[in-house]
Design a binder for these strands. Sequence first.
DNA 1: TATTGTTATACTCTATAACTATA
DNA 2: TATAGTTATAGAGTATAACAATA
Lengths: 139, 139
Amino acid sequence: MSIGKSLAEARELSQLMIDAADLSKDVFSNIAQELNIPVSLARAICLLETPAPMTELAARLACDKSYITPLADQMESLGLINRVPGADRRTKLLELTPKGKAVRKSLGEKVAEFSPVMVALNSAERATFMKLLAKIVKP
Amino acid sequence: MSIGKSLAEARELSQLMIDAADLSKDVFSNIAQELNIPVSLARAICLLETPAPMTELAARLACDKSYITPLADQMESLGLINRVPGADRRTKLLELTPKGKAVRKSLGEKVAEFSPVMVALNSAERATFMKLLAKIVKP
DNA sequence: TATTGTTATACTCTATAACTATA
DNA sequence: TATAGTTATAGAGTATAACAATA
């Protein structure tokens, strides 16, 4: 294969992958918007299946802990979580309220229904896609 | 298939796809950094195979034209492009200098060599991957 | 001394709106 | 009137650093 060709292939394939990821994020944003939840909060809510310390949530979101405080403030003021005592007196767990759990369930259902990978690919294709993605991400 | 299972699959697959795209972007950022080019400029340079009006570059980068001016300023001050007259007296074309072309060539070569999709997948796998991505993005 | 969460601040990226000059 | 590029400004999203309480 010529160098020029692999160059073009690398660019095209990388760009297509980025486009697909962006599309997936856009769909998630739209789902969050329909539920009247800022998308940053929706992401956090998805990661709160069980109560978690704020530092742990920061790790899951791959962001700084200082970013979590205003996020938690917003979720709290929307009645989606409560700050409950943790192992320490330092630690606060973010725990979904019943309303928060309902929102999380709705998010999950809509993601399963409208996520581009679910809409565009059948079960066998998704299995293949998963294997290829794992190869790209893992090494 | 249970609803719970497809929900988990949707999330896992979407997240993996986003992770793969982020990895690809990180690799590109590192390549740009090694060449001492801000990544925003590197992206633009890749799209300037032939001289293009600034509005056209904005369209290719999917951004507002007002974002192009400072980008062009930086590229110009680094000696990577020149603003040359276009069809109109309004239009300016961004044209890579010899240095700009050399940087673009280096970028292309490194992308072809280090892009995660190229590193992780063989030719047949890339063909499959491309088809699946096209299905996700196109419809 | 190290860690949890908070606060205040600052930075990066990008867009909006108003402007100039052409068309 | 519409278009190309520019300018000034503003906003979203996120990080850094210093701090308080606790360990």
